[in-house]
């Protein structure tokens, strides 16, 4: 007989689903359709193997992180359900701090313990016990031996102005395990990929692009990065160099409010994208940055033909 392990408690499953087994023991997991469709009972396994049926219909990024649908999960062996609200703080050393533009600070961190992540996921950074902010990872595990964050200076913010002023190499800080579903999954090397970002939303996209290229992606990879002004764009030279090196990668920096020099597109980033990429059928789409851009971008990409399961987004 197999068991369900939850919060240190091992429960005999009998012939119940993982959901019903937990519910019967007073552990309330939100659920609705009980048919493996609506995804309300989406859970994550900390250990144990998951039957394929319990991952039907999930995104590849969710499958890669051991998510499953508890209502249709009947595992043959013991399975441990991850507790998502317990925060595990990990120590990291600040190994470098560098201005990428007037408003963006590049922060390099060396985690003090083994740290497994995928380029494009995010971590939470603790300024102190109660003040936490999420930052996406621009580094690629196979290429970089440190974590890279892009921190945008939020005027009046509680964390970013403090980082701009005080953070220096040698500082000990605390971060969390990586999370998020914005990352590259191999397996469809010829698929076209569209990436749209504003401000420091470039961080995860920069990681995803370099990850896809180092994994040998052959389809088109098209990046649109938008800002209100010329000064808000950064890594422009690095991205142009990358585009020269890789024929399948192209980069379009967009400026919406001020003078637009040669080599830059004029307009809100999403408008530029929609004018140039009218048909997104079959494309994989990543959207990161301003929450309003991400929200309308998700809808516009879907209406332009991208499949819902191929659109990945982070609203920061």
């Amino acid at each position: 007989m197999s068991r369900v392990i939850y919060d240190g408690q091992a429960i005999e499953r009998g012939d119940l689903s993982v959901l019903d087994c937990l519910t019967e023991h007073g552990i309330n997991i939100p659920s609705s359709c009980h048919s493996g469709l609506c995804q309300t009972c989406l859970s994550r396994a900390a250990s144990g193997s998951i039957p394929a049926r319990a991952q039907t219909g999930l995104k590849e990024t969710q499958i890669a992180q051991n998510y499953f649908l508890a209502c249709v999960c009947y595992p043959e062996h013991d399975i441990e359900v991850a507790m998502e609200d317990g925060v595990n703080k990990l120590p990291a050393l600040v190994s470098g701090v560098k201005h990428l533009s007037a408003d963006i600070l590049g922060v390099h961190l060396k985690p003090q313990h083994p740290f497994n992540y995928r380029a494009g996921q995010f971590i939470n950074f603790f300024k102190d016990e109660n003040t936490v902010r999420s930052y996406s990872l621009a580094s690629v595990p196979e290429l970089d031996d440190e974590l890279f964050l892009h921190v945008r200076k939020v005027p009046g913010g509680q964390v970013s102005p403090w980082m701009f002023e005080h953070l220096k190499p040698g500082d000990q800080v605390q971060i969390t395990e990586p999370a998020g579903e914005c990352f590259y999954v191999p397996g469809k090397p010829a698929q076209n990929i569209l990436l749209v970002g504003t401000g420091s939303g470039l961080a995860p996209l920069y990681g995803i692009i370099r990850d896809a290229l180092q994994q040998g992606h052959t389809g088109k990879i098209v990046l649109y990065h938008g800002s209100t002004s010329f000064g808000g764009l950064y890594l422009v030279d690095e991205l142009r160099t990358l585009a020269q090196k890789h024929e399948n990668f192209s980069y379009v920096p967009c400026i919406s409010e001020s003078a637009v020099p040669e080599g830059y597109a004029s307009g809100m980033v999403l408008d530029v994208v929609l004018a140039r990429q009218a048909d997104l059928s079959g494309w994989r789409v990543f959207l990161c940055g301003h929450p309003e851009m991400v929200k309308s971008g998700r809808q516009e990409a879907f209406l332009a033909g991208a499949s819902m399961s191929e659109i990945f987004a982070d609203p920061f």
């Binding site: 009980h34 048919s35 493996g36 469709l37 995804q39 219909g57 998700r298 819902m308 659109i311």
Partner: peptide
């Protein structure tokens, strides 16, 4: 939208006589 799409799928499955509760 992603959550809503999952609900739409459950609705379609039901309308087509597939597994649903």
């Amino acid at each position: 939208m992603a959550r809503q799409a999952a609900k739409q799928k459950a609705f379609l499955t039901m309308a087509l006589g597939g597994p649903n509760n």
